[in-house]
Write a protein that binds this DNA or RNA. Structure first.
Lengths: 156, 156
DNA sequence: TATTGTTATACTCTATAACTATA
DNA sequence: TATAGTTATAGAGTATAACAATA
């Protein structure tokens, strides 16, 4: 719900952007807003937040992952991670387990309810990436993904 | 300061991302974090915030722009726009003017101090976009910009 | 001593609704 | 009635520092 009509509004005079219109920071923000709009129109009704599905998804694929490692992967700081995990625990979607091998750490896994939630919304979440749902062609989408990965230093 | 070591940490086990590693939302977030890191390492000392330079820049190029139009362009909601403008006014960087033609509206322009600030940090801000400062080649950068603009529906 | 996670706190950004003043 | 901007309030995300438990 961040407004798809950000640009080219009715009564507004046209303005000069200068190099801002080719600035990566500016364009990344616009692209992310567009992506959020997609997310909310697909998954907003479920009460899910943009970052929350990624958390559940990685626990889904990697049950028993340590909270700290998950936070580092998603660039979520430890203090915030505690809140995110507690919320999902309160919703009955994940379980915390203190392992014997290192009793300082917390290992996370989904409950049955959490797994069902992920399975129920998987298609909607990843459907955003389909080239049918944004202006890019399939080939452009592949290039876009490759460049986003390279720019972000993401090699996994 | 969002951590350049997000991925590939020392003691962490490697994990399975599944299709998340090619998800646009996920990759856009990583790319934006990387961009913020660049921003803070270049402009953090000036006390500037990521969105704030864009606001000043557009006023710099379009003196007298209306506050509402500026907000729509940058997807900043009216309520937040008031705060942003007030802060810049308190810092002595911009001036608000109520025009005779429509006394409900506010027209914004930079003060001398604001213009000098923009000129002093312009090179640092736009320098982030140089292909020397991220892993992409010049050609890849051009493609990246084109695809970001297309994905975001930005035509200006 | 170092590490894992928690608590407490604060600030930014965002979102909404009620309000004013002007049109 | 509608529009431009303001005020007030709340929530989400992020940042830091101090802390407890464990290694």
């Amino acid at each position: 719900m961040t407004g798809e009509l950000t640009l080219e509004q009715s009564g507004d005079e046209s303005i000069d952007y200068g190099p801002l219109s080719n600035s990566l920071g500016f364009l990344l923000r616009i692209a992310q807003l567009r992506n959020f709009d997609q997310f909310y129109s697909r998954l907003g009704d479920s009460g899910l937040r943009p970052g929350e599905f990624s958390v559940m998804w990685l626990i889904y694929l990697n049950p028993g992952i340590r909270q700290g490692q998950l936070g580092r992967i998603l660039s979520i700081k430890p203090a915030h991670m505690t809140k995110v995990v507690r919320r999902l625990e309160d919703l009955g979607r994940l379980e915390r387990r203190i392992p014997e091998e290192d009793r300082r750490s917390v290992r996370l896994s989904l409950t049955d309810k959490g797994r069902h939630f992920v399975q129920a919304h998987e298609a909607d979440f990843f459907g955003e990436d389909s080239y049918h749902n944004h202006g890019l062609t399939q080939k452009e989408t592949e290039t876009f993904i490759r460049l986003l990965r390279k720019y972000g230093g993401f090699t996994a």
